[in-house]
Simulated assay, not measured.
Amino acid sequence: MRRPNKYLLILLATVTAYVLFEYYRPKPLDWTPTYENDDKIPFGTKVLYELLPGIMQQSSVKTVRLPVYNFLTETKPAGRSNYVIICRDFNADGNDLKQLLPYVRSGNTVFISAYGMPDSLGAVLGFKADVKEPNEADSTLRQNFANPELVKSRGYNFFHDDGRNFLLIQKAKYITVLGRNARKEPVFIRVQYGKGQFFIHNLPLAFTNYYLLSPKTSDYAFKALSYLPARPTYWDEYQKQGRFDEEQQSIFRYIRSQPALNWAYYLVVFGLIFYAIFAGKRTQRIIPVIDPPQNTSLDFVKTVGRLYFQQGDHDNLARKKIQYFLTELRERYGLNTTVLDKEFTETLAQKSGTPLSETDELVRLLRSAQKSISLSEYDLLTLNAAIERFKHLI
């Protein structure tokens, strides 16, 4: 029975040990701001997503996993609705805005909370999402609402935010400031657009799990969302997770999304590469050296000729020599060797490129040998020398 390859066993044991170690070791707290609605980490939005139906007085909130353009052109929401977008940066191209603006103009509401906003949207609505220089960062900066009924006496501090982001108002006619920071800079505005309205918020961190569960900031998100009318609401996840939800994700996509499995995947790939490089060389069989096939025809002819010569059958050997030589002339030059006359001699000299005198001497010996009743050893040697001399000249 063949023994298992020790390199594969070592690789398998290493991968298994690493996966078990990553699975059972204490998981460090992940502070990555994902804003995803299925993340329980501090800066996910699972808490808000689960509470949103109650805030909107709806049985459920529909999750959108399509670009704005695709969703609004393919779905065509019935009746007026809310569209909530909470992400790190709101990325919308011209096609998205061509659908989003008419959606709001017809009486719907869009709530966007993001640090980055497209300049094209700001140019239409009259604002710009600006950011201060790094040396002006202030994690103690407090936020508050402009509405006296929503104001908190000491304000709200989201200390994981550096306080550099704010909104610069360029067209104040249709814009209402709903929230400012301690520097009196707008961070939350309402823009009337046609029959609907945009709510632009510049601090998405305020809607994450950490600040919704913190007693000091838990009511901020609910106060901000209280401006939205109670109607069917769509929650955008495309800006954060793309098109595919958990049921649509492939096994490979899931492996790449899990750090432990992702590292195990790389470990397997590189392990197989090293195995192919090093183990493959050691186990490769030696390629045997095979001698090329030899042409034994010449040896056979020599053997037969030696046999005739030793037996003294010079006449038979000479006539076979003539026969093979004439066959060679027919195949090589296409000559008729039935009659060895003057015409044959001249044609052979022209085609072979040999002197006519040498050719004439050779043909004369061939004719003489064919007419002889018996050929002696001398005749054989003379004829062989003439044939070899002719072959040497061509």
Rank of each mutant, 00 (worst) to 15 (best):
Phe158Gly: 00
Ala114Tyr: 03
Ser153Gln: 15
Glu149Lys: 12
Gly122Cys: 00
Tyr174Ser: 13
Ile169Arg: 06
Glu136Leu: 14
Val151Asn: 07
Gly126Thr: 03
Asn108Tyr: 00
Thr176Met: 08
Phe199Ile: 14
Lys173Leu: 08
Ala172Ile: 05
Lys173Asp: 15
Thr109Phe: 13
Ile169Asn: 08
Ile175Gln: 00
Leu121Ser: 02
Thr140Pro: 00
Arg142Cys: 00
Arg180Tyr: 14
Val187Trp: 00
Phe127Glu: 04
Leu178Phe: 03
Pro186Thr: 10
Thr109Cys: 06
Ala114Gln: 11
Asn181Asp: 02
Gly126Phe: 02
Ser139Ile: 11
Arg183Ala: 12
Val191Met: 13
Arg180Glu: 11
Thr109Asn: 13
Ser153Trp: 09
Gly122Asn: 02
Ala146Val: 15
Pro118Arg: 05
Leu168Asp: 13
Ala182Leu: 08
Asn135Cys: 05
Leu167Glu: 07
Gly107Asn: 09
Pro186Gly: 07
Thr140Ala: 12
Ser106Pro: 00
Phe111Arg: 02
Lys152Thr: 05
Val151Glu: 13
Gly122Arg: 01
Asn135Thr: 07
Gly196Ile: 05
Ala137Phe: 11
Val191Cys: 05
Tyr174Gln: 14
Gln170Tyr: 09
Gly107Leu: 04
Glu136Ile: 06
Ala123Thr: 10
Arg154Ser: 13
Leu125Trp: 12
Glu136Arg: 15
Leu178His: 06
Glu149Ala: 07
Glu133Arg: 12
Leu141Asp: 03
Asp130Cys: 04
Tyr193Ile: 07
Val124Ser: 04
Thr109Leu: 04
Pro134His: 11
Gly107Pro: 06
Asp138Tyr: 09
Gly116Asp: 06
Gly116Met: 00
Gly116Pro: 05
Phe145Gly: 02
Val151Cys: 00
Ser153Lys: 15
Arg142Leu: 01
Lys171Pro: 04
Val124His: 01
Leu141Thr: 02
Arg154Gln: 13
Glu136Trp: 11
Phe145Asn: 02
Gly194Pro: 03
Ala172Leu: 08
Gly163Cys: 02
Tyr174Arg: 15
Pro186Arg: 10
Gly122Asp: 00
Thr109Ile: 09
Asp161Met: 08
Ile200Trp: 03
Val110His: 01
Phe199Met: 10
